[in-house]
């Protein structure tokens, strides 16, 4: 007979296993406790740091971006814990909630002209104007953080990239497929596109062009102009046009060339 067989053998084996388990779980508890202790310490250090530098964090967009990256790397998310110690300490959570509300506000107010797409740069500039004073300057990273927060709420907020890597915030429940991206990329330099160019430059058959145009028209991303020089309908992308326009005249939205007569007008 081999050792360990029989009732007593089984019992011994069970005892052995349960002891092993006990030792294992004790070790596990100790490890977990140790980890928790280390995490707590880390969080306390970050909190201490954040508290000490909260003025700079709130004021300086670059510093804030670095701080956010540090928090993300250490698995502590100051944005998600708005109800916790972070909000009390810093108002950081509130900062992004406030910014998110402003992002939503700008997206809604430009939606009519832009069809629910807005260049991140344009959005950033508009937010800057909206917020006024330099005390609470925001960075591009802050804008993207706020959009990420809105995304959690649904409502179709997301960031897309097309046309030379420029990022656009979408605020309509719109899925851009490869064709839409190709079309918008082609439209980027002049803010418009025609069926002829889709055929020439992308080699698209009429049906394919029509399908992509129809979707983007329906979503309000494209506006049609039938008074173009060739008489062929031109499909404009207001959000791209707007970006170019706001580059010309960031202050009042007027074209640089048109400002001169206005000044004369005032002087008269």
């Amino acid at each position: 007979m081999r050792r360990g067989v029989g009732i007593s053998g089984l019992q011994r084996q069970q005892r052995h296993e349960s002891q092993l388990k006990k030792v294992g779980s004790e070790l596990g508890h100790q490890n977990a406790a140790e980890l928790r202790r280390q995490l707590d310490a880390l969080r306390q250090r970050i909190e201490g740091f954040a508290f000490e530098h909260r003025g700079v964090i709130n004021r300086d967009p670059v510093f804030r971006a670095h701080f956010n990256r540090l928090c993300a790397a250490s698995g502590v998310d100051p944005l998600k814990s708005s109800k916790g110690v972070w909000a009390q300490l810093l108002g950081v959570g509130d900062f992004y909630y406030e910014l998110a509300v402003q992002v939503a506000d700008v997206c809604m107010s430009t939606r009519a002209q832009a069809g629910g797409l807005i260049a991140v740069g344009d959005l950033h500039a508009r937010l800057g104007r909206k917020r006024g004073g330099a005390g609470r300057a925001i960075s591009r990273d802050d804008v993207l953080c706020a959009v990420a927060q809105l995304r959690q709420l649904g409502g179709g907020y997301a960031v897309s990239t097309f046309g030379g890597g420029e990022q656009y915030v979408r605020c309509v429940p719109l899925e851009l497929d490869a064709d839409h991206n190709a079309l918008l990329t082609l439209a980027t330099p002049s803010a418009r596109v025609t069926r002829a160019r889709l055929a020439q430059e992308l080699g698209w058959a009429a049906e394919r062009a029509d399908a992509a145009l129809a979707t983007l028209l329906r979503e309000g991303v494209l506006w049609v102009d039938v008074q173009g020089p060739t008489g062929e309908p031109e499909y404009w992308v207001p959000c791209i046009w707007q970006r170019a326009e706001s580059c010309v005249a960031p202050a009042d939205g007027g074209q640089a060339g048109k400002r001169a007569p206005r000044r004369e007008d005032r002087a008269r």
């Binding site: 009519a112 002209q113 028209l217 506006w223 049609v224 404009w236």
Partner: peptide, 23 residues
């Protein structure tokens, strides 16, 4: 005469109903 007054398609009545409402 705000920015969209310089946007060419602003002067074409938009065929899509929701866009036209906004226009």
């Amino acid at each position: 005469l705000t920015a969209h007054w310089r946007l060419p398609p602003f002067f074409t009545l938009q065929p899509v109903a929701t866009t036209r409402v906004e226009q």
